[in-house]
Write a protein that binds this DNA or RNA. Sequence first.
DNA 1: AGGTTGCAAATTGTCAACAATGTACACTTA
DNA 2: TAAGTGTACATTGTTGACAATTTGCAACCT
Lengths: 202, 202
Amino acid sequence: MSTSEIYRTLPEQIAARLRQEVLSSKLKPGDPLREVDLSERFGVSRGPVREAFRQLTQQGLLVLEPNKGVRVAQNPSVEVRPLVVRLRRTIETFVLKSIFERITADDLSYWEDILADIKAACESNDVDALTEHDLRFHQAIIRSHDDKDLFALWQPIAMRMMMHYNRLDDIMDSYREHKRILDAIQAGDKTAALDALETNIQ
Amino acid sequence: MSTSEIYRTLPEQIAARLRQEVLSSKLKPGDPLREVDLSERFGVSRGPVREAFRQLTQQGLLVLEPNKGVRVAQNPSVEVRPLVVRLRRTIETFVLKSIFERITADDLSYWEDILADIKAACESNDVDALTEHDLRFHQAIIRSHDDKDLFALWQPIAMRMMMHYNRLDDIMDSYREHKRILDAIQAGDKTAALDALETNIQ
DNA sequence: AGGTTGCAAATTGTCAACAATGTACACTTA
DNA sequence: TAAGTGTACATTGTTGACAATTTGCAACCT
């Protein structure tokens, strides 16, 4: 997502691009995606495109119907949304709690970099960039846990929250919320950090 | 899994078979899976096998390393396991709560059928069959919710709990626990049903 | 001996052709 | 006209060949 980021495989690159377009609503819920179109667009054969489709399906961004192809997934219904929020809070607070005492200076400086990106995105009113860096911020927390499996558990839940969603009136609030999380961590105030994190997830 | 069950696609059939072998520990954590081996075994080309691998990866049963292939995933660590339990309880109780008033006679008779299978598996001490029907029981509850997306959210979490796990000393306890859930539902006792469900998930 | 380099084999990744399936629409029939 | 049927067309599913990558091992150097 970050433009300089290097992806290992072809399907990953394609998936990253499509994910960005779904999260930024360039692709809207229900839109069909054709294998041939995308393979021509990316200059590859249908194989890698199919695999990118499977990856995004696993993340909940696309929906697959056998013999019919994929479409952009619908947003979670109003009924299910509170559940998704609860699940995501459960995972992220679990991780923050369990790593809190082991947070390193490197972790902090990395998170500060992301926070700076969030600030820049807010100031230039760039919603797409904000979505990207918001995601990176929370990803970074999850990934700081030793158990890599947690990320696979968290991703589909978080993605469902990130789709076409904008709960804030003032975009700068996003920066403030993330700053509050990081400030509390730096102050060593676990309770405040967890509270700030829960506030940010809704 | 149920022998008469019909799968739509080739990859689904392959995935179902491999899932059974992982859940029954015929395939053990860390075991590598080779595309050619399995394509020969199932009499298909590597394509459908690859896709089955992707499906099982999404369910958390396999782990994929680019250019290196897939291996059977490790069990969740003792540290993460309580989180997985909490997530699964959150989803299943959410579903049971929200469908409780709309449960039909058809639902109940279907669940009773599965309970009978569970009983039979317990009585013949068939752990593999028990795992299968245990899964079917909870799947049936999740699937009774209108929002089909819930299943995709639930599956990877539930699968991680089902892997190589056997918490009960007496296998018949599994039957008793599921019977308690169904009895409470039939009695219309929501609180008791939710409590029985939580007891069963650990 | 310890470490490095360079094959050769095993394995996954990608591609393009062909098969199977689903879809749209004109055509028939009552 | 309305319902059903047949037939092209569009699209996904599967296959086997070839390319790229990783891995194990032997030969080599220091």
